[in-house]
Design a protein around this nucleic acid. Structure first.
Lengths: 322, 322
DNA sequence: TTGTAGGCGTTATCAG
DNA sequence: CTGATAACGCCTACAA
């Protein structure tokens, strides 16, 4: 593999000059520039990116940690990240974690090891205190509804959004409301739970542990819930679902068991993915892709900008399942 | 940021020794090893990965080109790639292309620039001749049903699988069969078309251009097809769909228009994703994740192994939409 | 068992 | 405008 030195020799110039033409610097006489071009062409030269990275101390690579790429919410965020990344000439290094802390630490080590210039957590299991220890190794941004100001964060206000959903259900006559969560301990889920408890208290409804369903992320998870629902002594009349996939599963399960949506049970979800439109599922729209885009923008602004919390708008979409 | 030299100085040894303990080489006296550890701890040392890459000439990074991460088929492949990559200590660099050739070339340039050790095409728009020009820069593997032997490829036999699907539909009494494709010019799609034309000829049915629907990948695409179906003068009695999402969209559209599945139209699809199970869609199972895993394995075997074509099994799953 | 020194391929500073 | 040359941080013969 030809390197810059060989090009220099062949073109009869110094490596510095080659580097100059490589980087479109001014002050290179046209004939030399030409000679260098010739040499590069004839040797089919390509610069070694790793060497550039080492020399520059930056890689144009950003890490993205996500639990599973197979969940539309996350693949949507990635899509936003990828689009915006392209804009800034950034490549993406994916770190799939399944919420395993050790994998998240691996991602942090990539940052510390200077392989990536910054890191986006689309979700996390590791504590913020741990992440703080990596301060100074590069910007970190969180895609979560966060109260701290140590790291920039991008999210919709989950507590308000969940409240909005509950209010809507209540306005439709429901008071016996169950809900599902992706991962109880997640930052966003905790906000949702906070909202739930507040509203239930307000309308004098008890908090029933068996009306909150944890680890619900997929259509299959949603489908399973109906089995549990059937075994419930006291049954809710409405579900506020983690996302559209879970809602879809719930609805299929209900129909399968002869229940009518929204009369026997109402279903409201989050995300507003295509499946919700096709299935006429009432949902709360989240600008997921925009979260990804903003995450990259924030990362690029880097330390120059102050750590801010960016709050994106959500919107209730009324369709036919409530 | 502390580097290996500072550690050496602090520990009172040479950089070589530090490097040795870093890489768990034998022949380091325990006390020196200890001193180095101490020094590294006290300076919170982390090796610079970029430097290692430059020095070793390898990065443990592999590129993955995919048109869109937002399509379950692709996110599934990625999932397989990520899992297997973990096994081999490989990180993933994602290159989202939207089938734009220029982006695929960018990925190839990452290979040529030694940023990645190998490249997996989960799908491609660029011609094989172009990819061949990058030979020698690192292994390339294709996730497609390919006839060439220049590059290793992993796939199910799409022609046979499509035949199997058609035979099944025919056995259920259908002869007026429409089909949808993700991208007509894709390698896999072409195999499907070949199978379609052969079988239609065999049963003496004409090939009707308006019964093949291109650019169908999502649930929304499937939903749209029903609009077109309604405008058709001659209507098919069955659809063989690109994937389960398209099938789901088709089914919702049909139901919405008062059509009964499978009596008015039958639907058979590919992939066997969770949605097909929940919706009871008859489908042809493809071991998608396994394609990803095998792609990585093949990449790792690299040039040592001969370029082979790996054919994975498919399986017809009978459910309730045919 | 340890250290010296050269190499990986660029970039960038600083004279000229 | 151009060229030496020193980084960048690590690895690895080779020699001791």
């Amino acid at each position: 593999m030809a390197n810059i030195r060989e090009i220099a020799k062949l073109a009869g110039v110094s490596v510095a000059t080659v580097s100059r033409v490589l980087n479109n610097h001014p002050y290179v006489r046209e004939e030399k520039r030409h000679a260098v071009q010739q040499a590069m062409d004839s040797l089919d030269y390509r610069r070694n990116l790793t060497a550039i990275h080492l020399s520059k101390g930056t890689t144009n690579l950003i890490g993205v940690v996500l639990p599973s790429i197979d969940i539309p919410y996350f693949s949507n965020i990635i899509e936003g990240i990828a689009e915006e990344g392209l804009q800034h000439n950034l490549q993406l290094v994916l770190v799939q974690t399944n919420y395993e802390i050790s994998k998240e630490l691996d991602a942090l080590e990539l940052l510390r090891g200077n392989l990536i210039d910054g890191l986006i957590f689309t979700s996390r299991a590791v504590s913020l205190d741990i992440i703080k220890q990596y301060n100074g190794n590069g910007p970190v941004v969180l895609c979560e509804d966060s109260d701290q100001l140590e790291f920039p964060s991008i999210s919709i206000p989950h507590e308000q959004a969940f409240q909005r959903g509950l209010d809507y259900l209540i306005s439709k006559g429901h008071s016996r409301i169950a809900y599902t969560l992706g991962r109880k301990t997640g930052a966003n889920s905790q906000k949702r739970t906070t909202a739930y408890q507040a509203i239930m208290k307000k309308i004098n409804e008890p908090i029933r542990d068996d009306w909150v369903f944890d680890k619900c992320l997929t259509i299959t998870d949603g489908r399973q819930i109906i089995h549990k629902y059937n075994r419930l002594k006291e049954k809710p009349t409405a579900f506020l679902a983690t996302n559209d996939q879970v809602a879809a599963g719930l609805i299929f399960g209900a129909q399968n068991d002869g229940l009518t949506v929204p009369y026997d049970i109402a279903v409201l979800s989050f995300d507003n993915q295509p499946i919700s439109e096709v299935m006429n599922i009432s949902t709360i729209d989240i600008p997921i892709k925009e979260i990804g885009r903003k995450a990259v923008q924030t990362l690029v602004e880097g330390k120059s900008a102050k750590k801010q919390k960016i709050s994106l708008p959500f919107q209730l979409i009324e369709r036919k399942t409530v």
